[in-house]
Design a protein around this nucleic acid. Sequence first.
DNA 1: AAACGCCGCAACCGCCGAGGT
DNA 2: AACCTCGGCGGTTGCGGCGTT
Length: 348
Amino acid sequence: MGRAPACCEKNGLKKGPWTPDEDLKLINHIQLHGPGNWRNLPKNAGLQRCGKSCRLRWTNYLRPDIKRGRFSFEEEETIIQLHSILGNKWSSIAARLPGRTDNEIKNYWNTHIRKRMLRMGIDPVTHAPRLDLLDLSSILSSSVCNPTILNVSNLLAGSQPLVNPEMLKLAAAILSLKQENLIPIARNLQENQIFDSLMQNQVQPLQLNQYQTPVLQQGLFSSEMSNQLVQANNLEGLCSKVATFGNCSDNSIPSDLNEDFVCHPNHGNCSSNPTVPDIQENSDFQSLYNSNQNFSFESVLSTPISSPTPMNSSSTFINSSTEDEKESYCSNLFKFEIPEGLDFDEFM
DNA sequence: AAACGCCGCAACCGCCGAGGT
DNA sequence: AACCTCGGCGGTTGCGGCGTT
């Protein structure tokens, strides 16, 4: 696997995947002489590789302290939390996850977490709700508080609609519920501060880069950053509420909403409590985000890099769970899936 | 069974900063 | 100050496995 290194090709050095024999040579040499001096290592170890290739092979794969296998829930939680603070500083994130390499974390982020966040309507870069979803929140905010304001046809009119039509359907669904004397829901939404916080967000999108290393060094956890995480959580709550209602066989739901938002049949929450869905339902993934509200730098950064006790040592691993099961955490959390017809790239 | 397409991840690329001369 | 070497980092690529048609 992997690509052929240009430098190796130029120098007549071997390229591509490592063979077990090469691995053995590299391991034996490092066991005898230790890592380092990568430039001369290949020659001394009898390898037809460039030093850089040897170093990467060692640090990303052969190092004895590397932990293989699936990421635990605790690890995933830590990655997301740290990424919200550090951004794509994979080496810094890896330093807090004993046994994991920056490359492994980067890969896991790009292939699993990032995609899941997109599905959840969370921007994986800023960890804030997606802007198009914020548009929805502004519609809801104004219309729930002042129902005379909303004119759906105006929002969709013109060559460039103000909002994504799919989002508008969601808004229409909520307004429909409100008109069916479901005011408490709207009030509950407001109690979650979703409107205020999201409105702020809409005006000033989060610039997470400003919270990188300098903030870390100061040991501060920005309240604004915390708010962003909470806001993301709140938006999830909104989605949960809306989509849970969509799961009801209630005639108050516009038919076109049900067409586009596929609800999972196994949720069945509406039957037990059809009017006020509980956004605090058990969900590992939701608790993950909820935990951000209580997140402190100390809790993460206090773990020594070389700590003999991995931070997940006492946690419940979900290594045995399949990716589908992890996905189900999300679907349980939000009670809806983005319609397949929606092109995420279109919103990026 | 073969063809096709998607996905995960190992490995490379290119750039940068630190340290030495 | 300028240059060079080395190691590290984030971004990207593409092979191989696997599921689907």
